[in-house]
Design a protein around this nucleic acid. Structure first.
Length: 377
DNA sequence: AATTGGTACAACCGCACAAAA
DNA sequence: ATTTTGTGCGGTTGTACCAAT
């Protein structure tokens, strides 16, 4: 297998894109769509390889990209999802509409990772560093269970990401089809500034604080998908929602099988919360993410019969997963909302909100963590 | 004013995977 | 069934910018 690099042809330009090149690429895609990336450069009159064009488009020129500083909510989402998924940037990016995986990856590497490290938290495990040494007992056991959960969820997110992409593609081609000749619809940024985004990248566009509105995973984990930790529930019979997830709602892409019922896997919800990091900063999260409608659109698009048809039986499975794992929780994921979830959703540990993530996000100085809290220094 | 070190981010590289041939 | 092609993804590099010295 393998393939020769696409950019080793002589005469192809590398390095930073010029405004002229951006304009060419934008103009071409606006008129024709990108089609085959390999064929695009020659058709668009660019001395670039297709891959370079694709990257430039997906990471920079695409009209639905939000640029600028990450909001607190976005940081929170990234940290939580990174705790869950690791360096699965594309999966993380699906939960941050308008942000590219590349941007998130860069932001993690340049900001968040360092901040975590500075606080003595291992950016890989999201645990205080000295905890990494703890092994022999139940902790490692639950860590293994959490890892299983993470794998499963990770696979589910992959599917979600794929569906999101497909949906986006559909909507883009639809949009393009209905907007030819009206570039302002397709490229609002470019037309608004009469210059490609590269020329206005430093312009301070006010950012809408965003909420991690797609943290249905986390919401579900903290509530809906977990039966009570009390014994006797779930068992093996009727099954709580967690059992349903492990059984009926198997991830479309996951090949993982659980040897244990999910309610056993989730016997200690508190530890799971520690694992994913607790959400802290409640005061900033009351503004709806501007991309929410987009996501609602995605959700509804998943219900389209043709959409389901397109991806076969898994679509039904996925739709079911998507809805059932999402709590009816409006707005951001806050300690308050978690508490509310607790009262309905069987979570009983209010103290989890004092996790290192909240500390990280809220603090600049005080580095002490609550003592039962998920982390200590 | 020049140099140095750090930061931010765009872009590239190479691998992996799925679909097409 | 095998090979080729197109694309996605994560890791890494290059470079512009800025602040401190």
């Amino acid at each position: 297998m393998g393939r020769s690099p696409c950019c080793d042809k002589v005469g192809l330009k590398k390095g930073p894109w010029t405004p002229e090149e951006d304009q060419k690429l934008l103009a071409y895609i606006e008129e024709h769509g990108h089609g085959s990336w390999r064929a695009l450069p020659s058709k668009a009159g660019l001395q670039r390889c297709g891959k370079s064009c694709r990257l430039r488009w997906t990471n920079y020129l695409r009209p639905d990209i939000k640029r600028g500083k990450f909001s607190l909510q976005e940081e929170q989402t990234i940290i939580q999802l990174h705790a869950l998924l690791g360096n699965r940037w594309s999966a993380i990016a699906t939960h941050l509409p308008k942000r590219t995986d590349n941007e998130i990856k860069n932001y993690w590497n340049t900001h968040l990772k360092k901040r975590l490290a500075k606080m003595g938290i291992d950016p890989v495990t999201h645990k205080p560093k000295h905890d990494a040494l703890v092994s022999s007992d139940g902790q490692s056991k639950s860590a293994a269970k959490l890892s299983h959960m993470a794998q499963w969820e990770s696979a589910r997110l992959e599917a979600e990401a794929r569906l999101a992409r497909e949906s986006k593609l559909r909507s883009q081609s639809f949009q393009h089809h209905h907007s030819s000749g009206n570039s302002s619809q397709v490229y609002p940024e470019a037309s608004a500034s009469a210059a490609p985004p590269s020329l206005v990248k430093k312009a301070a566009t006010p950012l809408q604080p965003s909420s991690p509105q797609s943290l249905d995973v986390l919401k579900a984990w903290t509530g809906n998908s977990w039966p009570s930790t009390k014994s006797g529930e779930g068992g093996g019979g009727t099954g709580g929602s967690a059992n349903r997830i492990a059984g009926d709602l198997e991830s479309p892409t996951s090949t993982l099988t659980f040897s244990e019922p999910m309610n056993v896997l989730c016997e200690n919800p508190k530890q799971m919360i520690e694992f994913v990091g607790a959400s802290g900063s409640s005061d900033s999260g009351m503004i709806k993410e501007e991309g929410e409608q987009e996501w609602k659109g995605l959700e509804s698009s998943i219900n389209l019969p043709e959409f389901k048809e397109g991806i076969g039986n898994n679509a039904v499975l996925f739709t079911s997963t998507f809805h059932e794992m999402t709590l009816p929780l409006e707005g951001p994921w806050t300690p308050e909302s978690l508490r509310a979830t607790n009262s309905h959703g069987n979570m009983e540990n209010n103290d989890m909100e004092e996790g290192f993530t909240s500390l990280l996000l809220n603090s600049s100085g005080n580095q002490s963590l609550s003592d039962d809290g998920s982390a200590q220094r």
